[in-house]
Design a protein around this nucleic acid. Structure first.
Length: 230
DNA sequence: AACCAGGACGTGA
DNA sequence: TCACGTCATGGT
């Protein structure tokens, strides 16, 4: 399974550092990225720089569930406008007001409740890093969201497995599409240095590669990685 | 004009 | 455990 690392190196040299997780108040851009969403910070792994950014990442991780980031960005900008990207603010805000702010990100009834639940949890942490189990106990936080929060908001070296990861690597023959989330996660963690920077970068690269070669239509035809895996 | 996007939860078998 | 329905807006 040395191939896992080969693929990482290949994607990195192909697309370059991705600069995830995007932040609203960071003006930098990634010129190699598809689309023109701002907030990426390639080669800079010092984020989040403060608690505000940390909470923003958590909100984004919840809001992006099954939704394109461009939609999440709108929702986050709405929240910023009403000064609600802060746990205490989300905790207090009128739920209907919260729903209308995050409407662009879809599933607003559920996601408003999820943000409320998470804000309460976040406050209870009092600045400490949550465990994965603690995160999973929060209503609305599943495995991918928990791992995204740990990896990008807290720099904990946990590999994030998303639908794209399953699609790409099952097509390449690493496991079957129905494989268990944690088994897939451990496969990646076992074959990579335990480094949050690499995990962050790889996950972002997988999303970028999927958008170019693994949409449901393309489904990997012409995927250059096939030659590497063989 | 269907189809899908950086999932999670509830339900019934 | 597992397969399936539901949630909802916005871009292609």
């Amino acid at each position: 399974m040395e191939n896992i690392k080969k693929i990482y190196n290949c994607l990195l040299s192909e697309y370059g550092p991705q600069g995830w997780w995007p932040l609203l108040d960071f003006r930098g851009r990634n010129p190699t990225k598809t689309g023109s969403i701002k907030g990426y910070h390639p080669r800079d792994y010092s984020f989040p720089k403060n608690d505000r950014q940390r909470f923003e990442i958590c909100c984004g991780a919840i809001l992006t569930q099954s939704v394109a980031w461009s939609s999440v960005e709108k929702a986050l900008m709405n929240l910023k406008k009403i000064k609600a990207i802060e746990a205490t603010a989300i905790n207090k805000i009128n739920i209907e007001k919260l729903k209308s702010a995050i409407k662009p990100a879809g599933y607003f009834n559920q996601k408003a409740k999820k943000l409320k639940e998470f804000a309460k949890f976040y406050i209870s942490l009092k600045g400490k890093t949550p465990t994965r189990e603690q995160l999973l106990s929060v209503w609305g936080v599943g495995r991918e969201t928990a791992d995204s929060i740990l990896l990008y908001a807290y720099k904990v070296p946990i590999f994030v497995v998303d639908a794209y990861t399953k699609r790409i690597f099952s097509k390449l023959g690493f496991f079957k599409e129905s494989a268990d989330y944690d088994e897939i996660r451990e496969l990646f963690e076992k074959n990579l240095p335990k480094d949050f920077k690499i995990y962050q970068e790889f996950h972002a690269l997988i999303v970028e590669h999927a958008k170019r070669h693994y949409t449901k239509k393309l489904c990997g035809i012409n995927c250059p990685l096939k030659k590497i895996v063989k």
